[in-house]
Design a binder for these strands. Structure first.
Length: 321
DNA sequence: AAGCTCTGCAACCGCCCCCGT
DNA sequence: AACGGGGGCGGTTGCAGAGCT
């Protein structure tokens, strides 16, 4: 059972704040300060919950808020900090003067997460999404021989247990209180489901332009960093911070390929892509988005640079089919 | 023009932490 | 040490406006 409500919900106003209410709370706080929020609504003449007042003040009325759109530098900082500490929005917001944790959270959920997806980066682990396919390959998912033109179907062996995330996708925050690999997996793929609409697989047979940055990486095979203003490495967790999987998998799978890890043609530092994702080349070194169902089956979209098309690969868990 | 869908963001909810008693 | 209340936080929801069909 949770805590009792902080106020009588039937007796407080909810929803958007009016200019009049804003004026009241501003007037009150300018003379009395922000101590004891539970008493603020009564003293300020507001029919609001104290928490609601605090939220209105901290997220909107505070005079130090700048109310401007995010700069590219701020976005970069948010992504870097998210890679390092996860969704600790208040800590991230502390590094951004004039921006609230709510602003950061909203901006992440509406813009930055999508941007990373478009660049082939998993916004939770900050690792290439193709590594997920690599993992499935490594645990025994096999490619079906009956592959339609634009859809490849993969079958998991009967004995394959419910999939879990590889150690390479464990974040630096891992400890006893952190989600299990399996939880991370399902969280990730719920996210992927939500983002499937970004890449319309219904149109998989038609050509869909790849994210421009994939082209940038394609032109940069020397593993020394991206030539574009966008740096992949900025969005990726330092491998030192990740739980190594050396004991379980070949180094080529474990070593993160760095800025060139998403090299779509599989050249350069593409060891894990060539050797782990697929060996036949038809999904060679591809990146994309994926979705899954709770039975362990999942789909992953791959961009095929040669054909200039997205392909949909379906991974089926034979235990449930 | 109307209806539908999408997007962005303000606001809410409920849990957790901290601090005072 | 235990308890209770206030504040903080992250996840989620709901709504208004924009865009699309």
């Amino acid at each position: 059972m949770g805590r009792p409500p902080c106020c009588d919900k039937s007796n407080v106003k909810r929803g958007l704040w009016t200019a009049e209410e804003d004026a009241k709370i501003l007037a009150y706080i300018s003379t009395h300060g922000t101590a004891n929020w539970t008493s603020v609504p009564k003293k300020a003449g507001l029919k609001r919950c104290g928490k609601s007042c605090r939220l209105r003040w901290t997220n909107y009325l505070r005079p130090d808020l700048k109310h401007e759109s995010f700069t590219p530098q701020e976005e970069e900082l948010i992504v870097n900090l998210h890679a390092a500490i996860g969704s600790r929005w208040s800590i991230i917001a502390d590094q951004l003067p004039g921006i609230t944790d709510n602003d950061v959270k909203n901006h992440w959920n509406t813009k930055l997460r999508k941007k990373l997806f478009e660049k082939g980066i998993d916004p939770i682990t900050h690792k290439p999404m193709s590594q997920i396919a690599a993992y499935y390959q490594s645990i025994g998912f096999s490619k079906s021989t009956k592959s339609p033109t634009t859809t490849s179907t993969y079958h998991a062996p009967k004995s394959t247990p419910k999939p879990m995330m590889p150690n390479t996708l464990t974040t630096m925050n891992n400890n006893n209180n952190q989600p299990t690999h399996q939880e991370i997996f399902y969280n990730n793929h719920t996210l992927y489901n939500a983002n499937l609409k970004m890449i319309s697989f219904d149109e998989a047979s038609s050509s869909i332009a790849p994210p421009s940055l994939m082209q940038d990486d394609h032109n940069n095979n020397d593993c020394s960093g991206s030539s574009s203003s966008f740096s992949w490495s900025d969005f990726l967790l330092d491998e030192e911070l990740l739980s190594p999987c050396k004991d379980e998998q070949p180094q080529s799978q474990c070593a993160f390929a760095g800025p060139n890890g998403l090299d779509v043609d599989g050249g350069g530092c593409s060891g894990f892509m060539d050797e782990v994702i697929v060996s036949q080349g038809d999904l060679n070194g591809l990146v994309g988005s994926s979705s899954t169902s709770l039975d362990g089956s999942f789909m992953e979209g791959f961009y095929d640079e040669d054909s200039g098309m997205w392909e949909l690969a379906e991974f089926l868990n034979d235990e449930t089919t």
